[in-house]
Structure formats: C-alpha cells, structure tokens
C-alpha cells in the first residue's frame, strides 16, 4: 500500500486518495477549434512510461484537494508531490 504525501495534510495511506491519471493534461482552451484527431488524442492518449511519472491524486478522504505526485513507475518510489499550479521541480 502506497503512502502518498498530500501537499496540504502530509503523508497518508493510499485508500484516502483517488487516482486521477497523468498530470499536466489540461482541458483544451477551445475544444471547438480542435480536429477530431487532436480531440481524440486529448481524450484517450496518455503516456505510459517506465520511470518518473507525474500523475494526479485527489485527497478524497482528507482535504479534497487535487494535487500532483511524481512516482517512479518501475520502483514505486514516491519522488515527491506538489500542488496544482506548482511545477514538477517543486515536488518534495
């Protein structure tokens, strides 16, 4: 069971959180301007890489904040977490 550091509440066990997929995939500013292919890429295509991966978690049973985590998908090392609006370099 993972332990995840909520940037607001501190480290907590995984069942307190909900997973939110890859981080930094913004909802397109003007979806109507996108082609079907561009829109489909936004909807369905995500990275699936080995190594450090920025992903979103929601502290559902805690402060209800969405935030970002950098996790190593190969080792499950939790490299760090950072708030929405902060940069991956801010992870700690």
């Amino acid at each position: 069971m993972f332990q995840i550091r909520c940037p607001y509440c501190g480290p907590r066990d995984e069942p307190e959180f909900k997973y939110g997929g890859q981080a930094h995939v913004a909802y397109p500013a003007d979806p109507e301007q996108l082609s079907d292919e561009e829109w489909t890429r936004f909807l369905f295509v995500r990275d699936n890489s080995r190594g450090r991966y920025a992903e979103r978690w929601n502290h559902a049973a805690g402060c209800r904040r969405w935030f970002n985590v950098i996790r190593d998908t190969g080792t499950h090392e939790m490299v760090g977490s950072y708030r929405s609006g902060e940069r991956p370099e801010d992870a700690r």
């Binding site: 509440c9 907590r12 069942p15 307190e16 049973a61 805690g62 402060c63």
Partner: peptide
C-alpha cells in the same frame, strides 16, 4: 485534528 478513514 485529522480527516481520514475508519476503515471505509
């Protein structure tokens, strides 16, 4: 104080 889970 803490918001958490008692089991589920």
């Amino acid at each position: 104080c803490v918001q958490t889970l008692i089991q589920k």
